[in-house]
Nucleic acid binder design. Sequence first.
RNA 1: GCCUCAGUAGCUCAGCCGGUAGAGCGCUACCUUGGUAAGGUAGAGGCCGAGGGUUCAAAUCCCUCCUGAGGCUCCA
Length: 561
Amino acid sequence: MRIVALHSNFIEFEPKKRAVEAAEDIRMASKRIEGCLVVLTAIEKQDEQGIGSVVSQAAESIRKIALQLKVDKVVIYPWVHLTHDPSSPGSAKLALSMLEDELSGSLTTSHAPFGWYKAFTLSVKGHPLAELSRQFSPKGKPKEFDYRKALNSITKATLDSSKLKGNDHRIIGQNLDLFSFYNVAPGMVFWHPKGLAIWNELVRYWREEHRKAGYQEVSTPQVMDTLLWKVSGHWDHYRENIFLTEYEGRKFAVKPMNCPGGILIFKSRPRSYRELPMRISELGVVHRLELSGVLSGLFRVVKFTQDDAHIYCTESQLEGEIAGVIALTEKIYRKFGFEYSLELSTRPEKAMGSKALWDKAESALRNVLDKQKLPYKVNEGDGAFYGPKIDFHITDSLGRSWQLGTIQLDFQMPERFDITYAGEDGKLHRPIMLHRAIYGSLERFIGILLEHWNGNLPPWLAPVQAKVLSFSGKNDAAAASISQKLFSMGYRTELDTRPATIQSKIRDAEMQKVPYIIVIGDKEEKSGTLAVRRHGEKKARFGISFSDFEAQLAREVSERV
RNA sequence: GCCUCAGUAGCUCAGCCGGUAGAGCGCUACCUUGGUAAGGUAGAGGCCGAGGGUUCAAAUCCCUCCUGAGGCUCCA
């Protein structure tokens, strides 16, 4: 069924001559109806499969329109010309009368006679919603949305723990209440408060180190016109991985990489050689369509945050910048005690740009590695489509190797976006662009981190830095006040005043891998001290003063040890 | 996406020769006032991933889909 609903000042019609056998029997000269919704209606062949379904869809839709336009008079006007494939006149007549019946409950209805040639005059109001067309088919019957049922089909990801090891980050993440996954967002992480606490500390550390290393941070839009991705080359080389969306008729892409957005900031005004090397960092959230079979916990996800940075520099600065990135990466990885290996990836088949440029880029990377005598493996044809790269690899609990950091050389993007800087000679030059990431993705990095330390995070990273336990119910208030005191000093604390034995509370806190467990009993209350148990140690230390404990914790947090 | 496997309470799992659900932990309440990895009793909590089929009857058998796991392929 097809309809056109017209918000009209009036309609006037006059039957002239019978057109079909099935025509309605009427005796009518002419009729005029003021202030109404005229619904031109055509019943189609396919509607005969399910007249009831089509009619109720149409009735619902018409009621909605009438409500929106605040009209209570509806005129059904048979208008077969809306379709190329009309139903039999008999079915049409039936459907039209059913439609009027359904509508007559809530609206004042009337109709023009079926099966007649008619003269008519129509005055349509002409506002944006005055002319609306709709189409209904018997198959497309919209089912009632049952939210209870829908809720039922939202399921949490279940782990098949038989194949996973104890230090698998997915198990740690569940046990420590760090994050979860749901079927409504495959490959996208729900970060719980405790997981995000780790995240935020990593970001804080990252910002400090990057500030010291001369980086400036930016943020760019999440969705951008596909125009941008055509310029950057992603449209031709990476389209199968891009989420598409639409905005006022324009096609937009959810960014799968940060560089095209970032480069627009470089382009926002003329640049001088004095600004180079320019190191621009971005914690960029990207989405990539991945084959469903490749997703894996935090290691391989659809939405992730890259600790990206783009360095714009001159050719003579290039090797120094690469060496700088390697040094910063080593410094950060050392902080976490990671063992990694280096891989150099060269020109792939789907490459952009000339071979000569690629050779130049590859030799620049090779030179730095060789000069620093760093061992590396070469992956022929494994580079990004815009340039060769050095990757930092690390192994997980199952012995699989994952790429974290990366340094990618790019002679293409500057060409494509035509970015320039004014040199000492007053002429315009093209900068070289370096893409790099150190964590790689925060998600993957946290996964590796959890496995590497088996969830035993140091105080600066631990989601709960200290947990205060009351020895018995008598000590609940004192324990709460210690916990509150630490909390108000900015520490992440928890309090356990359950009516359980101290042994069982200790056990729980140990299993949550909390670095410091503080027990407050009568002895502590009396002497105003703490009993402190360090995670993993068998014995507690008694009689520790609050200020000594706090000073130690403060030092461990600020030095990140 | 492909091959193999899995999905039952918040978690770990039992039930799976069809007869509409069980345990332990956790949670809540009460008892216990105990000194560093599990004190006791009671209670609440599930449409058995979703949809369809076979059947008098489906968590259980069959089909489709979703999600997850391992591998392949691809990536940070």
